[in-house]
Amino acid sequence: MDGTQAAAASAVENLTGLVKALQAVNSTTWHDAFLALWLAALRLVQRERDPIEGPVPRTDTFLCVLLSVTPLAVANIIEEEESQWIDQSASSPSNQWKEKKGKCRQGLVNSLQQLGDYESLLTPPISVQSVANQAAAKAVMSISGITNGSGSYENTSMNESASGCSGNMRHLVVEACISRNLLDTSAYLWPGFVNGGTNQVPQGIAGNVSCWSLVMKGSSLTPSLTNSLITTPASSLAEIEKIYEVATTGSEDEKIAAASILCGASLFRGWSIQ
C-alpha cells in the first residue's frame, strides 16, 4: 500500500515499449515484429505443457499474456501510429503520411494470417479446448449467416469429427483482437481459418440458448442459473450491465447472486473478460 511494491508501469506499457524498441533496433517491418511477438507468447503457453518452474500450474497466467496483455500492447502501438497520422495529416497533408497510414494494422493482419503456418504452436491446452472450439464455431456460423437464439456463441456444443471445425489458439487470438477492434469479422474469411465447408455447422448449435441469453430475457437468478453464469464469462457489455442492474436494485438474494456472478466470471478466466 505504501507504493514500494507497486510497479510504476503496467505490463501492457512495458511490453509496448519493448516491442517498439526491438522493431526500431532490428529495423524490421511491423509484420515481422508482431509475428515474433505472437510466436513468443504462444511458446510461453506451450511451455506450461511440460513445466520446469514448479508444481503450480500457470496456464491461465500465460493465456492472459497471450490473449490480453499482448493484444492490448499491439492496440497501443496501432493507436499511437494512427493518432500520429491524424495529427500530421491535419497540419501537413502529404502523400508521405498517406503511405504510412495503416502500416501497423496491416502488419498485424499479415502476422496473424501467417500464424496459421505454425501448427505445432497452435494446439490449445486441454483446459481451453472447448473455448477454442467455440471460437471456431463462431467463425463457421458467422460465414454461414447462422446465429442461435440470442446471437451468443457461449455454451456452444459441437461434434468436431462431424463438423470439421475444431479450434486452435489462432482462433482465440483473432477473437481477442476482434474484441478490441483491431480486426473485424472479415478475418473469418482468411484462407484456412475455417476448416471444412461453410455449410457444416456444428451439431447442437442451432437453437442452443446460453445462460446469459436467459438473463437478458428476464429469467430469475435461480441457483442453477447462477452457477452457470459464474463459470461463463459474459459475451457483451449489455449482459454485464444487466447483472450490475440486478446487483444494485434487486432483492437481497438477487444482489448476492449477481455479485457472485460478476466476481466469479471475472476470476474464473480473466483473459476472456473484455
Rank of each mutant, 00 (worst) to 15 (best):
A136K: 01
A132R: 01
P125N: 10
K138G: 07
K101I: 13
Q114K: 13
A137S: 12
Y118Q: 00
Y118K: 00
T123N: 05
C104H: 09
L122Q: 03
Q134S: 04
N95M: 15
A90L: 14
A137R: 02
V128T: 10
L122H: 02
L115Q: 06
K98F: 14
S91R: 14
S91C: 06
N110W: 15
W97T: 01
P124F: 03
N95Q: 14
Q96N: 13
T123C: 06
G102D: 15
S94R: 13
Y118P: 00
Q113P: 00
A137T: 10
L108Q: 06
V128N: 04
S91L: 08
K101D: 08
S94D: 06
S92T: 10
D117I: 09
L121V: 04
Y118D: 01
V131G: 00
A137C: 12
V128W: 07
A132E: 02
A137K: 02
S94A: 11
C104E: 11
S92C: 11
L108I: 01
S130N: 11
G102V: 10
S111A: 13
G107L: 05
S91Q: 11
S120V: 10
A132S: 07
K103W: 14
W97C: 00
L115W: 04
L108C: 03
P125S: 09
V131A: 05
A90E: 12
Y118L: 00
N95T: 15
N133Q: 07
I126C: 11
P125L: 08
S120F: 03
I126Y: 12
L108R: 01
P125G: 09
G116H: 05
E119H: 14
D117F: 14
A136G: 12
A90K: 14
C104K: 12
